[in-house]
Design a protein around this nucleic acid. Sequence first.
DNA 1: ATGTAGGCGCTACGCCGACAA
DNA 2: TTGTCGGCGTAGCGCCTACAT
Lengths: 404, 404
Amino acid sequence: MYSSMRLAAAGQAPEQAIGGGTVVERRSLNSELWHACAGPLVGLPAVGSRVVYFPQGHTEQVAASTQKEADAHIPNYPSLPSRLICLLDNVTLHADLETDEVYAQMTLIPTSNSQQESPFSGSELAAASKQPTEYFCKTLTASDTSTHGGFSIPRRAAEKVFPRLDYTQQPPAQELVARDLHDQEWHFRHIYRGQPRRHLLTTGWSVFVSAKRLQAGDSVLFIRDDKGQLLLGIRRATRQQTIMPSSVLSSDSMHIGVLAAANHAAATNSRFTIFYNPRQSPSEFVIPLAKYHNAIVNCPATVGMRFRMVFETEESTIRRYMGTITGIGDIDPMRWPNSHWRSLKVGWDESTAGEKQRRVSLWEIEPLTAPFLLCPPIALRSKRPRGFQEEEDLELLMKKQLWS
Amino acid sequence: MYSSMRLAAAGQAPEQAIGGGTVVERRSLNSELWHACAGPLVGLPAVGSRVVYFPQGHTEQVAASTQKEADAHIPNYPSLPSRLICLLDNVTLHADLETDEVYAQMTLIPTSNSQQESPFSGSELAAASKQPTEYFCKTLTASDTSTHGGFSIPRRAAEKVFPRLDYTQQPPAQELVARDLHDQEWHFRHIYRGQPRRHLLTTGWSVFVSAKRLQAGDSVLFIRDDKGQLLLGIRRATRQQTIMPSSVLSSDSMHIGVLAAANHAAATNSRFTIFYNPRQSPSEFVIPLAKYHNAIVNCPATVGMRFRMVFETEESTIRRYMGTITGIGDIDPMRWPNSHWRSLKVGWDESTAGEKQRRVSLWEIEPLTAPFLLCPPIALRSKRPRGFQEEEDLELLMKKQLWS
DNA sequence: ATGTAGGCGCTACGCCGACAA
DNA sequence: TTGTCGGCGTAGCGCCTACAT
């Protein structure tokens, strides 16, 4: 399991604004709720573990956020490699105050070469999807979001996460209080009525919908945490991801800032800070070193190889799609030579998978050929991770297997 | 006058989003309305003119937007001077889609030394405040923003900018259509009634208030443009400036991005892009070279010198405050030696001016000593700018007057 | 000249079962 | 099991004047 206990303490006081202005939320918030909102595919490396940071992937996220690709105006940083091995110094969880979009702030410290070669510790080999158990998620219908009525709760959901109703009352009803990612309280009337009987949220629901500006297709999720407290979060429909151009910095400066910050940190072995937006774009650019290493060592990718890869479904469950590797090579051989970032060109079996990525990275796939047990993420998923040998130099291994 | 005709053409088609997502507004919008929203103090240099760019000032704006000062993590760029003489290649005007906050995008090209010394052209010497004439601005009262009623229009305002009512009708009334910065139409019922008689906006007003999320203290302004079209804009109260922390880039990376972008552009004589948010912070970091030059050459600032400086009042008019220079020197002698950015420490006459800047730049003040006519902004304001000599090297002049 | 409040009509919000998918 | 609809009661939106500043 990822060590959620080592995340920066929740409940820390929010930072005060400088000029007597608005209070800006900068504390790390409820981990369970954050992961529920982020979705089942999103894992965060453990604090204190070693990770691989890909400037390319970071640039992709900036491009997705600004809707501007990095172009020729961006200077080259020849001393910045396509991947940095770093110590993950800190992780804090956040949500946008306007949209509730979840993101994580990570501080990374580039490691020296000697540290890179030390063997993996137990926590570095483990992984977990961190989805809470007492949890449900429903995509809102037109009726749910209209002003005409309330919210129809799926039966199983209500019975699983809400406090049990007193069914001797006529009608059975109670008041629910749930906190969102910003610790704001929302009050709902929960009632069991109608013919046939059903669970509904009535009073309080509409103010929640308008405050969060929810539309049909967006999702709402409820959690009961360890203390029996009710939490709730939202997930916007992927289509309406209204990407706001920043009025602070030009996209060029953002791209430059990402690269220059990493470059400076690598040159001085000093800390740098990045934001990871898991739902903004499928660009997971901070990877556990163990996962990366396992993929490079144990998965000899070849053109024509068959594989599976997990995706999130509309109903926020995971599903595997099948595909074939159609090519291997750098995405940007000029700027980022010998990079493993999305080095695999792939085709997908299902024609409905037309909008899926055409390029993926080694550690994202599960090969269908033997040896099964040594390949990610299967090996990483086992609760008792098996140790494995590490005698050869990482770079050497990679060159032998892919770049020779 | 600043050459508004040379701004990038308005009416240009909006840029399409990359991934089939939301259309992002990136065209330059109505200049008159933009300036009305920006306020009477905000001027933009003419496209094609030479300007001085201050990385320090740019950094201040980033700090105000992120509420994080640039700290020790930021690398030094020793080759980046505290000011860059640039050609202003392009200016486009924008407004945030969420808040309607106005900002300008400028592309700058660092100039070679030979170009710096060419004499000023006519347009470079001129300046204008660009406030429209048929215009009014009202700060909203509690009654204006409550759901109980409509909007009370100041009498003179209605008579100046709205189409004349037919006062033979009982009651006199008409429908008004006004476009905002995003070219969105808003419809209002304008009626003249009550005892005593008054101008009101009724139907349509409340949807505008809730759509723009206006509160008492915010301002609304109306303009009639040259074609008789009605335009409207908003200005948020300065206190509630809800500063959103970006979830895209860490403030460190933003600061680095600003400096690295300017540094790279200066090193390669290539274009770079900045955003200027006039209402975010009082940090005008792109100054017409002529204005800068005039201030350095003709205003021998000394400790104890008296001066006036213009500020914007609550009612969006300008007012001069008196002050005294209490010190001269660099704000950050380590990182930015010999900078003119806010090199003057000042005190203000009125005790109510406690929240005013304690540091200003030479070109922001009007000295009270002779010679009046040569000092900014008076010399710059004259419609027929007088030419003046320029034989000595700029840097030399500055050193002689301030830094020797 | 214009901010606020009382009066009050009427829209549409929102709670209810009835259906049907 | 749950999405949508017709039914309605009523809170509060929003138009009006009166009055105060």
